[in-house]
């Protein structure tokens, strides 16, 4: 199954960039022990853009996501966010096993201080967005891996929009009252995805990639997606950014929409070069 959802016209994107990294570097440790994970990273992500970071092991992908999420501080350079607080999706669904699917989605809303009814309604909307409307009362262990990862997606969506209270709009998602300045009131947030589908079987992964694109279309959210699967990067992203390893730097970028048919081979070729340069 391939996605037939049209890429949004990137020219129409307005507003400040969702994310700007300027000369970002990250070094762990001191002196001779120091390990440079990232060096001189410049990256701009437009609001609503879907960007894949591609790289082999040791390219500092996770470090980069941590910096964007504010879980870690860069050693040099700066990270500027133009969206609501970004939220994370991991390789494992990492649902809280003692909560039902719905309560898992509600948790970030609860932590953001939303009322019981409001957060329940929002959680139900998000669950139906990921086609789990009737599974809200199940516990994580009663769901399949793919379903869990979709609950995790719904939870991440809840987390990234939780910081902008919905009270003014009556709690409705997408039911915007006319004349309201939505962009200012409720900027769609940003999802940081750290190989979210890597632990799934091939069939489920394929279906979930399609689902993620659909959700991306429906929410207008910005996505920064880390993978080491070239095929996945090309299928999902509008822009693919290839990172080198140890330290991680930006090697090249491709815009997927206007790339040549042989884009897959080209990217794979460059990735291979990056990897072989570490052979010695």
């Amino acid at each position: 199954m391939t996605s037939t959802i049209e890429r949004a016209d990137t020219g129409s994107r307005t507003g400040p960039p969702a994310l700007t990294l300027r000369g970002v570097a990250k070094t762990f440790g001191h002196g001779s022990e120091a390990v440079t994970a990232l060096r001189g990273i410049d990256l701009h992500v437009e609001p609503g853009e879907f960007v894949c970071l591609l790289g082999a092991s040791g390219c500092g992908k996770s470090t980069l996501l941590n910096l964007v999420a504010g879980l870690d501080e860069p050693t040099a350079g700066d990270v500027t966010l133009g969206t609501a607080r970004p939220s994370f999706m991991f390789q494992e669904a990492a649902l809280l096993p003692w909560l039902t699917a719905r309560r898992n989605v509600e948790l970030p809303l609860q932590l953001a201080g939303l009322g019981r009814r409001e957060r329940r309604q929002r959680a139900d909307e998000l669950l139906s967005l990921v086609r789990l409307k009737d599974q809200g009362d199940k516990r994580p262990h009663e769901l399949s891996g793919g379903m869990r990862q979709r609950v995790s997606l719904a939870r991440a969506l809840a987390a990234t929009t939780a910081t902008t209270p919905q009270r003014a709009t009556g709690g409705g998602f997408g039911r915007r009252s006319p004349g309201q300045d939505w962009e200012a009131e409720n900027r769609p947030g940003m999802l940081l995805m750290d190989e979210p589908f890597a632990a799934l079987d091939a069939i489920t992964r394929d279906v979930l990639q399609g689902e993620l694109l659909r959700v991306w279309e429906a929410t207008g959210i910005t996505i920064l997606f880390v993978t080491h699967d070239v095929r996945e990067a090309i299928r999902l992203a509008e822009r693919v950014v290839l990172l080198s390893s140890r330290p991680g730097t930006v090697v090249r970028e491709w815009r997927v929409g206007d790339g040549p048919i042989t884009l897959h081979d080209e990217i794979t070729g460059r990735l291979r070069q990056v990897i072989t340069s570490h052979a010695a």
Binding site: S128, G174, E183, E217
Partner: peptide, 24 residues
């Protein structure tokens, strides 16, 4: 267009053409 401020439309009305409906 995605950037119209419609953050969460129901899953089934993103596209309107019959073929697109079929795909969804």
């Amino acid at each position: 267009m995605r950037h119209d401020p419609t953050p969460l439309r129901p899953a089934d009305d993103i596209m309107t053409t019959p073929e697109a409906d079929a795909v969804l």
